[in-house]
């Protein structure tokens, strides 16, 4: 195991985050604060409690997930896409590092950034609403697993993408609708039965539901099923990655 290489990639990526502090940290915090002001405080005060939790507190796990998914996917994808785009990838491909080590470096950094931002948003949320975390360990488990899984998806997108448009396609066009329709702002119990059933096809539902359970003990689906689903996504990501590495897909000619 080339630990030095993993460290080099990891810290290089984390340094990139420091350079773009404004964009990386402050902008998601502002965006989330706006959500809290509009949905939590302004509209939320007129909405009755959901499952015994105030609306502002109810949407907090969903908002954290929304940011976590978006950040992990975009960090994971930009991390590997950028060297591909500028050509500096030559150095990584000609270094004595295995593909697994490259992934650990990039995905580890993207997931760390996602986690940091997610926790900052949690802290921000606590200024607006009362937050109780019933299962803090499980909350972290859900967060870490989600961060790794979606950073990995990001990495896959970064390897696949040929231009910036493709790079932004998933975080801009796929993640927001899935998150909005995945029960971030409502419990799927509130939906007509047909749409409640359709919602089960949305992977984000399981993430948000499990994550919310770790806060308030309420969930749309059994938290165990949520964990299993995250494990399924993680395995799916790893399968795609290992195929990419075997074939050198879009990296090695």
């Amino acid at each position: 195991m080339n630990v030095e290489a993993i460290k080099a990639i990891y810290f290089f990526e984390m340094a990139r985050m420091r350079r773009t502090l404004l964009q990386s940290v402050i902008s998601p915090v502002i965006t989330t604060s706006l959500y809290f002001i509009v949905f939590g405080t302004a509209i939320g005060s007129r909405i009755q409690e959901v499952g015994g939790v105030s609306y502002g507190a109810f949407i907090t796990p969903g908002l954290i997930m929304l940011t976590l998914l978006g950040q992990c996917i975009s960090n994971g994808s930009v991390g590997i896409y950028f060297p591909k785009f500028t050509g500096t990838i030559y150095e990584i491909l000609s270094a004595p590092v295995s593909m697994a080590e490259i992934v650990i470096g990039y995905v580890g950094a993207a997931a760390s950034k996602g986690m940091i931002i997610g926790l900052i948003i949690l802290a921000t949320a606590s200024f607006f609403v009362d937050i109780h975390i019933q299962h803090p360990v499980m909350m972290l488990v859900f967060m870490v697993l989600t961060a790794i899984t979606f950073s990995m998806f990001g990495f896959i997108i970064g390897v696949w993408a040929d231009n910036f448009e493709q790079l932004n396609l998933v975080p801009m066009l796929v993640v927001p609708p899935l998150t909005f329709l995945g029960g971030s702002f409502y419990s799927i119990d509130m939906l007509p039965p047909f749409w409640a059933a359709v919602s089960h096809l949305n992977p984000v539902l399981y993430l948000v539901s499990g994550f919310r359970w770790s806060f308030y003990g309420i969930s749309d689906v059994n938290p165990l099923i949520s964990l299993v689903m995250i494990a399924v996504f993680l395995t799916a990501g790893m399968t795609v990655l290992s195929w990419m590495f075997r074939t050198g897909y879009r990296l090695r000619k």
Binding site: A5, A8, T88
Partner: peptide, 28 residues
């Protein structure tokens, strides 16, 4: 390897980019 194209991390410093290369190759 010194590649043909001038590919560099534009926003990195000389010191950091050279140190990064050493780490990437497993050097302390």
């Amino acid at each position: 390897l010194v590649p043909q194209e001038l590919t560099t991390d534009q926003f990195e410093t000389v010191w950091n980019t050279v140190s990064f290369s050493r780490g990437l190759h497993g050097g302390k």
